[in-house]
């Protein structure tokens, strides 16, 4: 299917590129990571891993869905050894498709059972808490202070001033929706009922989770419902008008995972990476890369900036059940809530 001329052209191109790229020809001894975190976080993680173990490591930054799609499409010849960062539901989906190699790291023993896969397909490395990202200036204009509860969020003064992601397309959006299921003792109708009350206040259902933080930062909305670390990251960018607050009723959270990719070229190195990623010292690295999520390792020290977060009241978030109900519940949300006109 490739003509001779074309192949000639390809070979020529390869030769052209060889000069540019030979210095970085693929190494097999190292570990290649599909990294779902922030660029800087990924960079810090890989370099510290190499420093700690002497194993060279390299990463490609990918959002969870992209990582999953790429791991799946290349399953016959995996290019990644480890997948690190990004919400656990993506890992659950990957495990269901047998894309992950189960590995029970000795370091996983200390981690809470609800924060890891019972079969060892993935293990939690951080916890991100759902929070309110308040724009204090906009709120002050409405004579309001940072929002403290889900109830307060439905205040009519906040009409068209809340940003939240659509649960179909965003893990953040779905976490928010499922939090209300948990808050209502598993009653989905009640959860949707809350969303219906919130609906008039929602400017739009964003496609991606973190954009709500950006909208809050620029004052497009007064409050964004995002993971705390997303809001903090934008705050760190210079948007000092932002203030993170947590709902007093309790809030949902995501668990970030790490896993060995099935058929990894360097599975020994991959396991070493997972071992390392679960250590307290690895999990304490987050804040140095301005990532403020909670560690899963109970022995990891929690810095000042994370103290509030660690005290937040969290709902009992059942990752497995949430994942199982996702398609049906998101579809209900789409039809019953998102498409309803805003009175």
């Amino acid at each position: 299917m490739v003509s001779r001329a074309k192949r000639g052209a390809l070979i020529l191109t390869v030769m052209l590129l060889a000069g540019a790229c030979d210095a970085k020809a693929g190494d097999t001894a190292g570990v290649t990571i599909a990294c779902g975190g922030q660029e800087q976080w990924c960079s810090v993680m890989t370099s510290h891993f190499t420093k700690a173990t002497g194993i060279p490591a390299d990463f490609v930054r990918l959002s969870s869905g992209e990582a999953l799609a790429r791991i799946k499409a290349g399953r016959n010849k995996p290019e990644f050894d480890v997948w690190h960062g990004g919400p656990a539901d993506a890992y659950v989906a990957a495990a269901a498709q047998k894309l992950l190699a189960p590995y029970r790291s000795p370091n996983a023993a200390e981690i809470k059972p609800e924060w890891k896969d019972p079969a060892g397909a993935w293990t939690g490395v951080y916890v991100g808490v759902l929070a309110f990202c308040n724009n204090t200036e906009v709120l002050a204009g409405k004579r309001m202070t940072p929002i403290r509860s889900w109830r307060e969020l439905t205040d009519p003064r906040l009409r068209s001033n809340v940003a939240i992601a659509h649960p179909t397309t965003s893990g953040t959006g779905y976490t928010a929706l499922w939090s209300h299921v948990e808050l209502n003792g598993g009653a989905k109708d009640a959860a949707l009922g809350y969303m219906r009350r919130l609906h008039p206040n929602v400017l739009q259902y964003n496609k991606t989770g973190s954009s709500a933080a950006q909208q809050a930062a620029t004052g497009e909305v007064a409050v964004g419902i995002v993971f705390a670390h997303d809001c903090v990251a934008v705050h760190e960018e210079g948007y000092t008008n932002l203030h993170v607050s947590y709902p007093e009723e309790g809030t949902g959270y995501e668990v970030g995972g790490v896993a060995v990719v099935a058929g990894a070229r360097n599975s020994t190195g991959a396991r070493k990476y997972v071992d390392w990623a679960l250590t307290a010292e690895a999990q304490e690295l987050g804040p140095t890369a301005r990532v403020y999520s909670l560690p899963t390792n109970p022995r990891a020290r929690i810095g000042n900036k994370l103290r509030d977060m660690s005290k937040v009241k969290r709902v009992d978030y059942d990752i497995a059940e949430a994942g199982a109900e996702k398609i049906a519940l998101s579809r209900r949300f789409d039809i019953e809530i998102a498409r309803a006109p805003k009175q």
């Binding site: 969870s64 869905g65 179909t168 397309t169």
Partner: peptide
């Protein structure tokens, strides 16, 4: 993705099916 708001179109829907729903 940035300015679409609630206005959903096929291309971004396809993208989000991959990135948000892990459903190629």
């Amino acid at each position: 993705l940035v300015v679409g708001g609630d206005y959903t179109v096929l291309a971004s829907r396809a993208y989000l099916a991959v990135t948000g729903e892990y459903d190629t």
